[in-house]
Nucleic acid binder design. Structure first.
Length: 178
DNA sequence: CCCTGATTCGC
DNA sequence: GCGAATCAGG
């Protein structure tokens, strides 16, 4: 039991249908389901005959002029999913300040993050910062959502906080940062 | 470059 | 049936 999510169980199919008809994009649904790619979701959607979503106006007549490969018919009107834009997470040029041994204080973490840019699990995607903000048990829970560093789950700002390299306690550091 | 869905085809 | 690769577009 306990499939790792790689199979289309009834539950997963139901959720897929729901989310798809709700207008979520394939990638969002894939992220929600987990362990599946957006391609898998799209493939399933088509097999289920759910494509077209809100409206389906396929000119079956002009579908004849199709060589072989994909040649999408009309164009689907974007589901209009609000996509957060990473404005400007202004940061100081690396605080290599010799903060002595005082435990680094990140009291101003949040101020550097535009409130308006925060996202819910639904809008969070691979390229967005997954820094949690707030109480995960509350519906107001959000993620940072700023553009994450390629290859990392966090944005520039949070990556520095998350991956602190064994804070150097050495008072003398010639600061040889390239 | 980021993303979207659509289609094909080997598995 | 499944989904990666590919295609076509915004």
């Amino acid at each position: 039991m306990m499939d790792a999510g790689g199979t289309w169980t009834d539950e997963r199919v139901e959720l897929l249908k729901k989310l798809w008809t709700d207008g979520l994009s394939a990638s969002q649904i894939a992220a929600e389901l987990g362990n599946v790619t957006r391609n898998a979701v799209i493939g399933k959607v088509h097999r289920l005959g759910l494509s077209g979503r809100a409206k389906d106006a396929k000119p079956a007549g002009s579908a004849a002029a199709r060589p072989r490969k994909a040649t999408r018919a009309p164009s689907a009107p974007a589901p209009i999913a609000p996509q957060p834009h990473n404005n400007n997470v202004v940061l100081a040029p690396i605080p290599t300040e010799p903060v002595a041994e005082e435990p680094v204080v990140f009291a101003d973490d949040d101020i550097a993050i535009p409130m308006s840019e925060r996202v819910t699990i639904m809008d969070l995607r691979e390229s967005m910062c997954r820094w949690p903000m707030g109480d995960p048990t509350k519906p107001e829970f959000r993620f940072c959502g700023a553009r994450s560093i390629t290859g990392l789950p966090y944005c520039n700002h949070h990556a520095r906080i998350a991956y602190q390299p064994v804070a150097d306690r050495k008072r003398e550091r010639k600061l040889v940062r390239a």
